[in-house]
């Protein structure tokens, strides 16, 4: 895996986006109930690289989320790298989860990776409708950024 770049960008842990999705699914499957899954998701959020506070503004805000979510992207080495954060803990974890799938990947791989996995893993359904829509809005924002690259 071509590595890490400096800054708040999330580095891939898995070789491909689909491997990341499979790995996340396996990790979520280890838990019997959603309260445990949430604990795991909250901890993922805590491990996000620190997001620069001067990016926590409207220009970086993802519309359609009930909580505040901020996103930034840059291109380097033929890949798109994302940084993200939220003021809410569960949403931070979902940002971490999404960026594990999408950050540090080539544009084509991002566009080929449907956000359907959020539903397949039960993540959208486990949240209230508004928050579920918010997660999907985040995935859409990431893919829109890739499409514009």
């Amino acid at each position: 895996m071509s590595g890490v770049i400096d800054g708040p960008w999330v580095a891939p842990e898995d070789d491909t986006a689909s491997a990341a999705i499979a790995e996340i699914g396996a990790e979520l499957d280890m838990f019997d109930e959603w309260m445990e899954r949430y604990q795991y998701i909250i901890e993922l959020g805590r491990k996000l690289p620190p997001f620069p506070s001067d990016w926590m503004n409207d220009a970086h805000r993802v519309p359609g989320c009930q909580s505040q979510v901020w996103l930034e992207a840059r291109e380097q080495d033929g890949r798109l790298w994302f940084a993200g954060a939220s003021d809410a803990a569960i949403v931070s974890g979902l940002v971490a989860l999404l960026l594990r799938v999408y950050s540090g990947r080539p544009q084509s791989e991002i566009l080929e990776t449907s956000p359907q996995f959020l539903r397949d893993l039960g993540l959208v359904q486990a949240l209230s409708t508004n928050r579920g829509n918010g997660v999907e809005a985040m995935a859409a924002a990431i893919r829109a950024r890739a499409a514009a690259a």
Partner: peptide
């Protein structure tokens, strides 16, 4: 240190309905 939306979600999964926002 706890966002109201996080509290509402974690309460919901314990069967407790509150409003947050």
């Amino acid at each position: 240190g706890a966002h109201p939306h996080d509290l509402a979600t974690l309460l919901d999964h314990q069967g407790i309905a509150v409003r947050a926002g």
